[in-house]
Design a protein around this nucleic acid. Structure first.
Length: 460
DNA sequence: AAAAAAT
């Protein structure tokens, strides 16, 4: 199937052609005819499926034909609003579609003036939009199509009340489209409330980014080894662009400075920065002028940057859902990606919760050349081994190895065991004695180095 | 408790 079969207005078709679009994606094939028909729609889809064009093209087609005069798109974050707005501008520029982005952190005057001047598409975040409607500043903006983008994210971020209020200001006589990656109960309820007799489409599963293309690893470290581990990983991994996620803004600032001091091409991003600065930083990152972005969860959702090879979780996120969104910044557009999480033994339960709750497939790994960094806690590793079906044999090995210096050895054993456990489903696992002997041998040679390193650290 | 989003 080709885009020409949709019979878009010639100026819209030109935008599609210049953008280099050839074959419509699954969601575009399904959504475009429904939207053209004027029906309400619930679309279940992740970012990166071609969602923006799926609603943007039929919407702008109707604008170009003069069938409608105004459309509204609501997105959860400012960055996403900018991104959607840019894409719509590029697709619709030959039809002269006037698009405006509306969000907080910038002046009111320009936004209000442009709306009164007659923009056709407003892409907005909930807070400022609600503010403008409530103050009666944009009574004139009565959209005939309304798109709720990433509705579940808005729910997660607590915008549901804002959304409901916004819909009180919008005429009932409209076409409403709701997109969401997941369909929790409150979203279904919202859909019932604001949509009329909608069609449902879903493209979940066709591009399951959580498990297929993203290789997910975790490293066990001590709390004070996070910086050291990140630096080592940046040095040893084959990275192009990468994102390091922290939990707190001041952590972002500190780590950014630290990495910059070490000569990494790094920028920090969080919500306390001026909106203008945020955009400059993202643009530079998009262009590849900065390679390492250190960020809070402000960058976890929706942002679509090409060629992000690695996502690092400096800390595991507070919210398990956030893990999925974070790692979804890599492995986009059919490319593979690496998701690496640093975790202390204290956080291990939380990591398991994430694995369970979102079905993430992570494996334990070791940092190349990072002796003394990985699996620095013997107790944790011993527990891991004890939890395995081979428990009895494992205990023998632990006893045999005895002291703390052998943690590297243990860690390797755990890796092997976990691998084995994966491969042999259901059956009892025994130690591969030959493999153990091999590892013991190689360990003997590494032991001295490790011991010396540990001693040096203790003295400090 | 964090961060996001209105100020």
């Amino acid at each position: 199937m080709k885009f020409s079969e949709f019979n878009f207005h010639r100026d819209i078709a030109k935008g599609v052609k210049i953008a280099g679009f050839k074959e419509p994606s699954p969601i575009q094939k399904m959504a475009i005819p429904i939207i053209e028909e004027g029906k309400d729609l619930v679309g279940q889809a992740h970012t990166g499926t071609g969602k923006t064009a799926a609603f943007g093209l039929p919407m702008m087609d109707k604008l170009a034909r003069g069938e409608i005069e105004r459309a509204l798109v609501i997105t959860p974050t400012r960055e996403l609003a900018t991104q959607v707005s840019d894409e719509l501008y590029h697709l619709g520029r030959f039809a002269g579609i006037r698009t405006l982005t509306v969000y907080g952190g910038v002046g009111y005057g320009r936004q209000i003036a442009l709306i009164h001047k007659g923009v056709q598409i407003v892409v907005a975040t909930p807070g400022r939009l609600k503010d403008l409607y409530r103050k009666g500043k944009i009574d004139v903006f009565n959209p005939e199509i309304v798109v709720l983008d990433e509705a579940d994210e808005m729910l997660d971020m607590g915008f549901l009340e804002e959304i409901k209020e916004i819909f009180e200001y919008i005429p009932q006589n409209r076409q409403t489209l709701l997109f969401s990656a997941t369909m929790p109960e409150p979203i279904k309820e919202l859909a019932n409330h604001i949509l009329y007799n909608p069609e449902f489409i879903s493209v979940i599963g066709e591009e399951d980014t959580t498990n297929n293309v993203i290789d997910q690893r975790y490293y066990v470290i001590n709390e004070n080894q996070r910086d050291e581990a990140i630096v080592k990983l940046l040095e040893t991994e084959d990275t192009n662009k990468c994102i390091i996620f922290c939990r707190m803004k001041r952590e972002v600032d500190r780590l950014t400075e630290h990495l910059q001091a070490l000569g990494f091409n790094t920028a920090g991003l969080h919500g306390d920065l001026e909106q203008q600065d945020r955009e400059v930083i993202i643009k530079a990152y998009r262009r590849g002028e900065t390679k390492v972005m250190v960020a809070t969860d402000v960058a976890a959702r929706g942002i679509d940057v090409k060629d992000v090879t690695h996502v690092f979780n400096y800390h595991i996120p507070f919210d398990p859902q956030s893990y999925v969104h974070r790692i979804g910044r890599t492995g986009r557009a059919g490319k593979s990606g690496q998701a690496i999480t640093l975790v202390t033994t204290e956080e291990f339960r939380e990591l398991q919760r994430i694995q369970k709750e979102v079905g993430a497939q992570m494996r334990l790994a070791t940092i190349r050349g990072g002796e003394g960094l990985d699996a620095a806690n013997l107790e944790y590793l011993a527990d891991q081994i004890r939890a395995l079906p081979v428990h009895k044999d494992a205990q023998k090995v632990i006893d045999y190895m005895g002291d703390m210096d052998k943690m590297l050895m243990l860690e390797k054993l755990v890796s092997v065991l976990l691998d084995q456990e994966e491969q042999t489903t259901g059956s009892q696992i025994g130690f591969d004695q030959k493999r153990v002997d091999e590892m013991l041998e190689s360990f003997e040679s590494e032991q001295k180095v490790t011991r010396n390193n540990n001693r040096r650290k203790k003295r400090r």
